[in-house]
């Protein structure tokens, strides 16, 4: 019997989804900096240039606003572009065509036009400094019309990319620098991971950790350490931030009675704030604790970067504090 799964690096899962979809659908093309023969900053476009040529794998100048604007225009006119924005920090340069045009297009034209574009970008801290490390997913969560996915492993990266490429869009696909070295088993058969579905990736009974992207690994590490302390953690990978599967988180919290949100970005108006509010809307008051980066820029200095970003030991400390606190949000500084 042929194998049902193949082991792939995270980048290979992305490129497989692109390669298969581009072969099936001539409307799909890629544009971005260094996506051509170079194959992308993380080799996540490896082989596409050789397979599909320069018309469908287009190197661009460093011009994020025009890259997104041209991508959105091409999408509105019937194509399905994938625009690569190397680092999420640089998405800021292209927010006008994304937020003011693409996100509103279907609404403002009364459904005459749509923008089936995928914007693929890379977030996260990995020694690159204050303007190349940010996780600004929550900034986008208040923009009606956008969808936002943040896969934490190769199988979801493949399934969510396939789903994004078939979606009426616009979809922002956010990967993470520290996920590229991670391999994982990916089903060989073509499939899509529905946008808007979270997943319980570790069952537990004492606390629900709602997180996504690279922080799912930090959550796992902390959960391993806490077994010895007699604390059983359930970990939920949100996978999609718009739409947000708050129902699954609420089901889990209904059992564990404790919700801890974990993100690499800022806690203030962060992903966790929204998760907590939506869970409380379903369950009434629940114990909530939000964990994220310190309220400071993310330095390239290794000591300062590590101090800023949540790690397993800090998460262990936060969870122990939270579980034992009578009123965590009031007590914590």
């Amino acid at each position: 019997m042929p194998p049902t799964h193949q082991r792939l690096f995270y980048r290979e899962a992305i490129v497989r989804a692109l390669r298969e979809t581009m072969a099936d659908d001539p409307r799909v093309f890629v544009m971005g900096q260094d996506v051509g023969a170079f194959g992308g900053a993380y080799r996540e476009f490896d082989g596409l240039f050789a397979a599909f040529g320069p018309a469908r794998v287009r190197d661009t100048p460093v011009a994020e606003a025009a890259m997104i604007g041209i991508g959105v225009g091409a999408a509105a006119a019937g194509l399905r572009p994938v625009v690569s924005i190397t680092y999420m920090d640089f998405l800021m340069l292209g927010l006008d065509p994304l937020v003011n045009y693409a996100a509103k297009l279907s609404y403002k034209t009364g459904g005459q036009l749509h923008a089936p574009i995928v914007i693929k970008t890379t977030a996260g801290a990995k020694g690159q400094g204050v303007a190349h490390s940010q996780c600004i997913e929550s900034w986008l969560m208040g923009v009606p019309g956008l969808k936002l996915v943040c896969p934490s492993n190769p199988a979801d990266a493949y399934g969510l990319m396939v789903a994004a490429l078939e979606d009426p869009g616009p979809v922002i696909f956010v990967d993470h620098k520290k996920l590229f070295p991670v391999p994982g088993d990916v089903p060989v058969a073509r499939y899509r991971t529905p946008i808007g579905t979270a997943k319980i990736i570790r069952a537990g009974s004492d606390i629900t950790i709602a997180t996504y992207s690279y922080m799912t690994r930090v959550a796992h590490q902390a959960a391993d350490l806490l077994i010895n302390e007699g604390i059983s953690c359930e970990v939920i990978d949100l996978r999609s931030l718009i739409p947000l599967d708050a129902a699954l988180v609420a089901q889990s919290v209904a059992r564990t009675k404790n919700l801890l949100t974990l993100e690499e970005g800022q806690v203030t108006c962060g992903v966790g704030s929204e998760v907590a509010a939506q869970v409380q809307r379903r369950l009434g008051p629940v114990r909530v604790h939000r964990v994220g980066a310190l309220p400071a820029p993310v330095s390239s200095n290794p000591v300062l970067e590590a101090a800023c970003i949540p790690n397993a030991q800090r998460l262990v400390d936060e969870i122990k504090f939270f579980i034992n606190a009578t009123n965590p949000e009031c007590l914590h500084p």
Binding site: G69, I70, A76, D96, N100
Partner: peptide, 18 residues
């Protein structure tokens, strides 16, 4: 949006070219 349609138009042109 002032200047907001300029890049969009280039995208429409790209779709036509492709």
């Amino acid at each position: 949006v002032v200047a907001g349609n300029i890049s969009i138009a280039a995208g429409v042109a790209l779709a036509r070219l492709m």
